[in-house]
């Protein structure tokens, strides 16, 4: 216990033993921290590529589904059912955006309704939310919550079903994670149908959707014959050994900056209390710098939305 106290004293508090500057702020220790940070930076990339450990996606469909329904229930709305067809439409939309390098609801001659109809889902009303570059599922739904148009889609009472796609890819020159959320309500008295070839869309009577906020549409009757769809709830990942790389990197980054902030403040206060006069960098300036980076982590964690 005495050893621990002595070590903490040496690391955090200026004294004759550490040349009147917290050891954690010495140049040699900063080099050690840089080496550790370098390991973190390259190690996380290596872990992702080698797949030695089970790597979990930080943005998970089951989590998005759960958070979406919790958001609806907080507004007194019934939960949405998970639709494989809307999920299929969302996957196709995500892949289409990556292949054709665009980030928009309407792009490369296709609309969200094209993908929904091609999946075999004939809708009375439908909608789409998009997100990219987020690190965590909670951030995605919070981002949608804070946007009136996206929130309007999530809390639209008319929707019955939802489907998600989460896809990694290069978009506009950057590796990113896309999230596509498709909403829908089936046409009345219609059963779900098998997904069809996109080229068969031509015989579907489609009303051109209005360019409303949050991107929603109503459509006339479809010529497709209904069939059954097995609505299924995505399975929850139960493997406790899986490591979320983004969570690991983010947590370690926050911890490192937090530690630096604490040691700078403690060193500043204790040096003043002991009346130490010394030639060092300005702790106040370092505190402003590190505090800015900690706030910056919030912006890095949250990605972008499209209106």
């Amino acid at each position: 216990m005495l050893w621990l106290t002595s070590t903490l004293h040496h690391l955090f508090i200026p004294s004759h033993r550490n040349n009147f500057r917290a050891k954690l702020l010495h140049l040699d220790f900063l080099i050690v921290l840089i080496a550790a940070a370098t390991l973190l930076s390259f190690g996380t990339g290596w872990l992702e590529k080698t797949e030695i450990l089970g790597i979990a996606q930080d943005i998970r469909i089951e989590k998005l589904f759960q958070l979406t329904n919790e958001a609806r229930q907080s507004q007194g709305l019934p939960p949405l059912h998970y639709s494989n067809q809307l999920a299929h439409a969302a996957e196709n939309k995500a892949q289409h955006m990556i292949t054709n390098n665009y980030w928009a609801h309407f792009g490369s001659g296709r609309s969200p309704w094209d993908f929904i109809l091609a999946s075999g889902y004939s809708y009375e009303v439908a909608g789409e939310n998009l997100a990219k570059g987020f690190m965590f599922s909670e951030g995605v739904v919070d981002g949608w919550r804070n946007s009136s148009t996206h929130w309007a889609n999530i809390t639209k009472a008319e929707y019955d079903d939802v489907g998600f796609a989460v896809m990694n890819g290069a978009l506009e020159g950057e590796e990113t994670t896309l999230v596509v959320q498709m909403f829908g309500k089936r046409l009345a008295q219609e059963q779900p149908v098998e997904p069809k070839d996109e080229k068969q869309l031509a015989d579907v009577g489609l009303i051109k959707p209005a360019q409303a906020s949050g991107v929603e549409s109503t459509a006339a009757a479809s010529a497709v014959q209904p069939k059954g769809e097995n609505d299924f709830v995505p399975a929850t990942i139960k493997n406790s050994w899986q490591i979320s790389i983004n969570t690991l990197a983010f947590s370690l980054s926050t911890a490192l900056f937090g530690l630096l902030l604490v040691v700078l403040l403690v060193d500043l206060v204790m040096a003043h209390r002991f009346g130490i006069i010394r030639l060092t960098g300005k702790n106040i300036a370092h505190v402003i710098f590190i505090a800015t980076l900690i706030i910056g982590l919030y912006f890095i964690k949250n990605g972008g939305l499209i209106l």
Binding site: I34, L40, S253, I290, L293
Partner: peptide, 10 residues
Amino acid sequence: ALAMIVLRAL
């Protein structure tokens, strides 16, 4: 440099 390397990881 420490700040750069940490944020590079993210």
